[in-house]
Design a protein around this nucleic acid. Structure first.
Lengths: 139, 139
DNA sequence: CAATAGTTTAGAACTATTCTAAAGTAAGAG
DNA sequence: CTCTTACTTTAGAATAGTTCTAAACTATTG
């Protein structure tokens, strides 16, 4: 008989693939983050979600884990709001709408949007990434 | 005989023009901000600069003033770093290089850079602004 | 299954920012 | 000028998000 539980096999694989020990906490967070399509979370929102599901994970671990996932290339950080840090499960080429009223992010596929005319960076520096944030509001 | 002091006349005018009472603190900060060309400051950096010149202005006032100037349209906020808020004296159409290693901003004129293909925003929302941040690093 | 290297955690600490309420000041009226 | 009043400034407390610390815990290896 098999225990009734969320399918965590994929999460374990994914963690092993990037060299992260698949601890209970990491597996649970990875399951939440990567189960469905692309997601945008803050440490707090993910912690609340996990807690709401009865998972016991400290906020510190959520922070640690989000950063580890980011370094491992499973997540990407998005800077749109001076007061919170967002993490995006979509690590591919894309940009964002930021709904300023509610603090929500919506992906814009990389193929749709184009940035032209970026000048040469100052000597000795190279472009790491070009981020586009389309800030939208009610009205 | 005229007192030897920084020329604050312009600053006073500028403040009056946007309906802000030209108090000593606001005049001094405006003088620092708008004397030379475009500048990018954080509350802390501006406070340090003022203090270094012997000006007595509390950090709280620097924060208040930066926000008032922003609401009045004299400054613009730039979000590039999750941990600090930057204010830009260039309120016109332009974008930024962000030197991640040192936390410095460099303007990219609005004429040089173009963003094409921004999709229609979700129903009921309208585009407030399109921000482009070109993140660069050593190497 | 023991050893150990890596992980989690509670709580303290930190950083940037905002708030509070008391003291100070610019501007207009008289 | 000087009074009055509304607006400002300020020190310090408070807050929010995040990071740090060191002790307890656990996955993995031998």
């Amino acid at each position: 008989m098999v225990k009734v539980r969320r399918d965590t096999g994929k999460a374990v694989e994914r963690l092993r693939a990037v060299g992260l020990r698949p601890t209970r906490q990491r597996v649970e967070l990875a399951s939440l983050l990567f189960r469905n399509g692309d997601r945008h979370v803050t440490a707090e929102s993910l912690h609340d979600e996990a807690s709401g599901l009865g998972l016991k994970i400290s906020l510190a671990t959520v922070y640690n884990t989000l950063h580890q996932f980011t370094h491992a290339g499973l997540l990407r950080q998005v800077v749109v709001d001076a007061s919170r840090g967002y993490f995006d499960t979509n690590t591919g080429d894309h940009q964002h709408f930021f709904l300023e009223d509610e603090g929500t992010l919506i992906d814009i596929p990389g193929e749709e949007i184009t940035v032209a005319g970026v000048p040469q960076p100052p000597a000795g520096l190279s472009v790491d990434r070009v981020d586009v944030v389309v800030r939208v509001r009610r009205g």
